[in-house]
């Protein structure tokens, strides 16, 4: 009986230790994240510039979309041709 109680107490102590460690780790993580957030906020001027130059983004994006569309139609054309050949 004494053994069982001792074993249970040991387990409870281990859980308390783990919970304390977990809370410490969570706190550390929260502090790390918040530190990073403060660092990022210090770069606000750069982000404001990004807002002002948004039309450049559209040009860049349009180039990527055109390439993806070209690739898509090329693949379709190739699969149509292959399908046509096999049926012939």
């Amino acid at each position: 009986m004494l053994d069982t109680i001792k074993r249970r107490e040991e387990l409870e102590a281990k859980i308390t230790d783990l919970e304390t460690s977990l809370n410490t780790l969570k706190k550390q993580l929260r502090e790390e994240v918040q530190k990073e957030q403060h660092r990022d906020i210090d770069h606000l001027e750069e982000y404001l510039d990004e807002v002002d130059h948004r039309y450049g983004n559209l040009r860049d994006f349009w180039g990527i979309v055109r390439k993806e569309l070209r690739d898509f139609f090329a693949r379709r054309k190739a699969s149509d041709t292959n399908g046509g050949d096999s049926s012939a």
């Binding site: 990004e50 807002v51 130059h53 948004r54 039309y55 450049g56 983004n57 559209l58 860049d60 994006f61 990527i64």
Partner: peptide
């Protein structure tokens, strides 16, 4: 639409 265009700057 404005912030959607801004997000396209990260497209790559």
């Amino acid at each position: 639409i404005t912030n959607t265009i801004v997000s396209l700057g990260h497209v790559r």
